[in-house]
Design a protein around this nucleic acid. Structure first.
Lengths: 238, 238
DNA sequence: TGTTCAGATATGTATATACGTCTATGGCAT
DNA sequence: ATGCCATAGACGTATATACATATCTGAACA
């Protein structure tokens, strides 16, 4: 229905040039893209123009970049990526609302290779896996988290639970596709209604809104965090 | 808990400078910000740095800009802004899924001043107000829309409904706060389960994901679209 | 009185250039 | 072999400059 029109701006054209080659399969997932300087020579535009195109593609989740390394084609979103987020409790408190929370389940798990890379730990390290219902005022929001913490004590289990700061969290949620600007909305599901034993399902209807503040995708098994001790090894095809 | 640290980059400092003044009330909602050139003289940075700071603040919903006009402080998000989006049906088809839809309700309403400005119409103009359930494959997603269309015929009501292209749509959804990258996720609610007379609520649990592609906020009563016949008049305080 | 048009202003884009920072690599000394 | 270090490569940021485009304003004009 909608023809793919040629973008009017040059950085838009560079974006389209890259998207076309990813779409056609010429540049596969995990494949290293030409460097910014190479694009400059190939396309005859300035490096700032290339940089802007690549920066936008990064924020759109199409490519992943690392300073000193290069640019790589991201894996297409499966809808269940691991995203690193700020603490939800802080967000709720900072926005002037009352925060409570209740732990539904809390276990420890052993990190597989993906989680180990994501957390910059060794495989087999014990991580916490929790399902927590956060309340913004009285509105419930179920969040599944995996995190690692040396300060965690199991007797928090029956108390109000506020996740301390220095931990790194990975929230498994619906993942990003190509977008410019982000809002994340969750409506409590029927499942949550049952979980909380709410007899008035209408109380669930009010939207609980949370906002991403850091949406960098941790590409499972493909990419490491900046500063990670893990080398990229031979995973990429240059 | 979290101290506000001074951003390391200059454009980050410019962003913080502006955010501080908005936070302190020195620059109120609707207030016109200094021009890029003015920031250059005041802060002693280059215009490109100011431009990048303002561009990011725009994508974060903090300010609204218009070429040839200026930069203005956006209204804080109430969580229910009017956003202009691309057609959901197109998104579903373009992503390779099967699209169906069902109209739950369809009425006409009279445009109030806000809607009139948003649609670039006169107040009192008849608009359509619809509640439609879109299906991505078999996953339901309820969407409330307001739109104006000369081509619309009421006998679409019992058919499959695919919204044609030239219409302008305004989706009332959870609105943006400060974010960099956007994902929108909706889980079908208990209300939707009732609406669709699903007896297996577990079928509702699967996430329906949609992605924003155009998230420009239409500031109600404050801003007009580029190209609108409506002048800005004296609404702003320079 | 209403219209047209030129100029001023503000943002949008593009380039060239420079420097900073991070990472990977390979050589050298231990 | 192991560790240290210099270097090259790649991305991140910042500036100065120029031109393009959209909007508003006010003066000239019919």
């Amino acid at each position: 229905m909608s023809d793919t029109i040629r973008p009017p701006t040059r950085y838009g054209q560079v974006k389209q040039y890259i998207l076309d080659r990813i779409q056609s399969g010429e540049w596969e997932v995990g494949c290293r893209l030409p460097s910014e300087s190479a694009f400059v020579e190939t396309l005859g535009v300035s490096r700032m123009t290339v940089h802007r195109a690549l920066r936008e593609l990064t924020s759109e989740g199409v490519v992943t970049r690392a300073q000193g390394v290069g640019t790589f084609v991201s894996a297409p979103s499966t809808g269940a990526e691991l995203l690193e987020l700020r603490d939800i409790a802080d967000d709720i408190v900072a926005s002037g609302h009352i925060h409570r929370s209740r732990i539904v389940s809390l276990d420890t798990i052993r990190a597989d290779m993906d989680l180990a890379i994501a957390f910059d730990q060794r495989p087999g390290t014990r991580l916490f896996h929790s399902v927590i219902v956060h309340y913004e005022d009285d509105i419930p929001l179920q969040v599944e988290e995996r995190f690692v913490s040396p300060h965690f004590a199991p007797d928090y289990l029956d108390q109000d639970f506020s996740i301390a700061h220095p931990h790194r969290h990975l929230y498994r949620i619906a993942g990003p596709e190509e977008v410019e600007h982000v809002v994340f909305a969750i409506t409590p599901t029927a499942h949550i209604c049952d979980l909380l034993e709410l007899d008035a399902p209408e109380a669930c209807l009010q939207l609980v809104r949370r906002t991403w503040v850091d949406s960098r995708v941790v590409m499972k098994g493909i990419f490491t965090y900046p500063g990670s001790r893990y080398s990229l090894g031979g995973r990429y095809r240059p």
